[in-house]
Design a binder for these strands. Sequence first.
DNA 1: GGCCGAACGTA
DNA 2: GTACGTTCGGCCC
Length: 952
Amino acid sequence: MADKQHLYLVDGSSYIFRAYHRLPPLTNPQGTPVGAVYGYTTMLWKLADDLHKADGPTHLAVILDASGVSFRNEIYDQYKANRPEPPEDLKPQFPLIRDATRAFSLPCIEEEGLEADDLIASYARAAAKRGWDVTIVSGDKDLMQLVGEEVEPDDGFAPGKVDMLDTMKNQRIGIPEVIEKFGVPPEKVGDVLALMGDSVDNVPGIFGIGPKTATKLIQEHGSLQAALDAAPDMKKSKLKERLLEGREMAELSRVLVQLKEDCALPMQLDDLKLDAVPKEPLAEFLAHHGFTSLLKRLDGGTGSPARKTDLHPAKQDNQARAAAPEGSRQALPEMPPVDCSAYECVQSMERLEHWIARAFAARKVALDTETSSLDALQASLTGISLALGPNDACYIPLGHGGTDMFAEKPEQIGRDAALAALKPLLESDAVLKIGQNIKYDLNVLARHGIAVAPVDDTMIISFALDAGRSMDGIGGGHGMDELCQRHFGHTPIAFKDVCGTGKKAIPFGEVPLDRATEYAAEDADVTWRLHRLLHPRLAHEGSTRIYERVDRPLIPVVAEMERNGIRVDRAALARLSEEFATRIGEIEAEVHEIAGQEFTIGSPKQLGEILFDKMGYKGGRKGKSGQYSTDQAMLEKLAAQDDAPIAQKVLDWRQLSKLKSTYTDALQAAINPETGRVHTSYSLVGAQTGRLSSTDPNLQNIPIRTEIGRQIRTAFVPEAGNVLLAADYSQIELRLAAHMADVPPLKEAFARGEDIHARTAEELFGHVDRDTRARAKTINFAILYGISRWGLATRLGTEPDEAQAMIDRYFERFPGIQRYIVATLEGVRERGYSQTLFGRKTWFPRISSKNQAERQGSERAAINAPIQGTSADIIKRAMVRMLPALQDAGLGNVKMLLQVHDELVFELPESEVEAASKVIEKVMGEAALPAISLDVPLAVEIGHGTSWDAAH
DNA sequence: GGCCGAACGTA
DNA sequence: GTACGTTCGGCCC
């Protein structure tokens, strides 16, 4: 590699617009307007002519916009919406740009879902990292963000320079020219653009802020974020108001103007090598369009770019590929196989500093913590692994050895010193930290005073892409081992193979360092590889918005909620346990008395035999297990029809046993000894629809429906002087159904604050009473859950025929509902997934199953998923905005503790209830905006008190 | 010790 | 009829 490589990236799309406006109208012999094409052709000619000249291209590609829609349209549906139609005499010239490029035998690259700017950014970055110089042929100000020098060349390369060439003005644009234009260096151009907006692309920016003010703000504050953060403390002014008002728009704009630098490259860099331009097919093209002066130069051979006429075989291949783009399918990034022997065990501060420096340079690092427990809030830190690339990973042991006081501890850096060294890296805005379920690592490190940010999470990225996507034999989970197996065909070392399982398990800190390094560093390595593979798919597959705007920002919010925990009154739970135990004992004796023998009431098998074999009640065997059914419905039937006293007693016994074992006993055991509070763990990938799920303990199913169960909620209490505040969305799923299915009567009823089930009863039955309202309520829910005549019949206690008549009537009164169901199912059958209003996908691979039960099950789930999922998206958006909103209102003391699907629970000083309620209601009520403007209001009900029960 | 189904708590 | 998680008994290895 003697000479420096120099890649020219031609921004073809923007060029043609400028050429059109600058050049006189011109038509070819067929009468097609070709003025812009001519301008474009002369530019390519000139570039090709510069081959082998100083600063001329050695490699060249033309980048085009594939179509009007990119991932930015998902983020902001108004993106480029104002762009006027191109002039009539320009339209036919677009396809000719590709013809012209092919005539020069040059690669022409475009990708669905990506704009030319993103591909240019990605190629520029990739080339510069290899030490190539890059020239972007364009005048587009957005691309000026890219000018400069690569700060993280791949190992062994000198940094490559990136500049721009405006062929219209014949001007080179380097860092000084960018500063001259924007007043800030290239890396801050994006911040300026985000503030000033762009009327052509319809990037909103902040209303009233133009280039001058934007530049001034960034110069003063250093960054967009800093300027926005400083706004509340500015002295009262129009500008302050505009900044506060426009914060969200500015942040949105920042995302819109951000160029994607990590797109998968449709063609390898080496394939862009610029060889001599063959005479054909260029001559034919020039002749066809009547570009005779160029044709003469080509024929004359003087100053023409065609020095050789032999067609390079590879070039021919490139040309074919460029001519027939294969949709958005891309080659996977190539990565070497996992090699666990390649990892380093970092045992000295010197080596740690080396890794930290390299991580800063790489600007992204995969991270994994090893601990003593799955509970992030009790675990102690055993070690940290980092990865910077495939097989480029290390493990930093921090807490190995020590169980055996007499054994010598392995050599390792002191934990506090290591964490102090890592803290700037882990907290640096400039370095992306990638984790697999990084919320866990966030919580572990938060307990050591480290606020890890910014983060990406491969588990959540996988979920955004592939929720529900499991086929027979292939799991649909998002755990690392499963993802690694599915995507790389590699099985990482299993934790249980390192630490054992059950009684024989040893803590990770007892694992020998060589073995620990293999395991831990491999996890970071695999996480890095997963990110490289999965993250580019977000943009390609239309899931950027849901990930970037909803799930990703939610990670630190939920982590904080988990750390907050909620106080429970142990003594109150203990009293309830006692009461329940006594009553359970009494009932047990009565049941045994009636049965005439002792048996295990909690065994459905034994209970069934007692009820149906011994006592002779009528009831059928059921299912493949061959067991009698003894569920609630059956026991209630026995109690009512056969007047069986034992049935009611078993029901009472079951209720109390459930409450005692699952709640009053288990919750006491779940109290964290350090905090005295209960800390649940939320899963962000637990429910296919996008809902959160809660485990260890599950705080999303604390009883509320029965008086006796409700007592458990009285044990959830605030600290002295505080109160608990519960804010619920009222009927959110029905409201969303009314909006999404477009049901005018239901929308009106919600707009007027009417009783929605009563309104439904009026529509269906013509009058409202207790009975018709109850039936209407049942039907409303049946709709949300994907209706079937059998299911509805069970709930209504009628025959399936009658239920079907009811469904027909419902569809007749609310035709939008039927249209929604049909359209949703058609969409899922066609695309394979459903989508929420915010673009979250859920896959339904069994939607066309030959098995009827399976297929119908998928259909019901597919009808429900957009509604349940949109509701989940909305409350998640509210959660993301909640803490900043409270902070802005001076309510930094308010803590968000729990989420229960349509409810948020807070703890706060009693004196702040009024002020906080206002903020909470506003944030929740407006959570769909500005992305989605619902036709129905989102009503929020708020209560507070000295227990969770009292807050309702 | 680990896994599965039945049962039941929530939205 | 949707979406979850936990407990228990019963059974397997």
